[in-house]
């Protein structure tokens, strides 16, 4: 995969508020822009609104108010039947890997292409390619349970990138990994970012995020501030900053 193969979209949140039916306000008037091809960390404690923000980007939830634009897509205009096609433009990685234990490494990855009706030959070629990128080409036929946590997360990353999505969303991707594996996964995400993908990583591991030297968007009780902002002055929240 050459540099620029991934067409990372711009992400724009404009005054987005998300309130759940139980009156819990997960996000409160959050605005930010992530540039095309940017690598950004979403940071905050549990309950800070990171997951809600990711759910909004995945169209798992809709905002109570405000507007979200990802690339050419105004998310409010994407209705039910179009959501799967929108999600194919996003690669998603979870803390608990979410790989299918009954499928081999290569099957877990090819699965993401089968839903699009891709040709078997093309699937085999691309699966081989991405397993090479994540360093699992020699373990293609193995079952996930035989692999370490770091390797299982690499399967999830391979699955996330096999359809060459412009946007990679990783929700606590290193949450279940030791420090060495965490660094490897971050390096892998950075490598994908260098090829043009916009990468958004939600994490509560401040040290890891700071070591990467990327922009950090702080969330605290649903209120946002950039790492370089004076959170209190700009947003009035009790940010970590």
């Amino acid at each position: 995969m050459a540099k620029g193969e991934y067409k990372g979209p711009e992400i724009v949140f404009e005054n987005v508020t998300k309130e759940y039916p139980n009156r819990v306000k997960a996000l409160d008037n959050v605005s930010f822009t992530i540039e095309p091809g940017e690598f950004v960390f979403l940071m905050g404690h549990s309950g800070s609104g990171k997951s809600s923000l990711i759910k909004l980007m995945m169209l798992e939830e809709r905002p109570t108010s405000g507007k979200i634009t990802i690339g050419d897509d105004d998310l409010s205009e994407i209705k039910g039947g179009k959501i799967p096609y929108y999600r194919r433009k996003i690669g998603v990685v979870f803390q608990d890997f979410r790989i299918i234990k009954s499928k081999s490494v290569s099957e877990n990855v090819s699965f993401a292409m089968e839903i699009t009706g891709e040709k078997r030959k093309e699937i085999a070629r691309k699966v081989d390619l991405v397993l090479n990128i994540v360093g699992l080409q020699r373990k293609a036929g193995e079952m996930p349970d035989c692999l370490s946590g770091g390797e299982q997360q690499r399967i999830a990353i391979a699955r996330a990138i096999v359809n060459v999505p412009g946007l990679i969303i990783a929700d606590e991707p290193t949450g279940n990994l030791d420090p060495a594996n965490s660094v490897e996964i971050m390096n892998l995400l950075e490598k994908i970012n260098e090829k043009g993908a916009t990468v958004v990583v939600a994490t509560h591991e401040r040290e890891l995020a700071e070591r990467m030297g990327k922009r950090i968007i702080m969330l605290n009780h649903g209120v946002k501030s950039d790492s370089n902002d004076d959170a209190s002055a700009v947003f009035g929240g009790d940010s970590d900053e």
């Binding site: 039947g81 799967p84 194919r88 998603v92 979410r98 790989i99 993401a112 839903i115 359809n163």
Partner: peptide, 16 residues
């Protein structure tokens, strides 16, 4: 169920 959940996240249609 886990496979179904993953399918949804990676863009499988309801029909699929």
């Amino acid at each position: 169920r886990r496979e179904i959940e993953i399918m949804k996240y990676i863009g499988a249609t309801d029909v699929f």
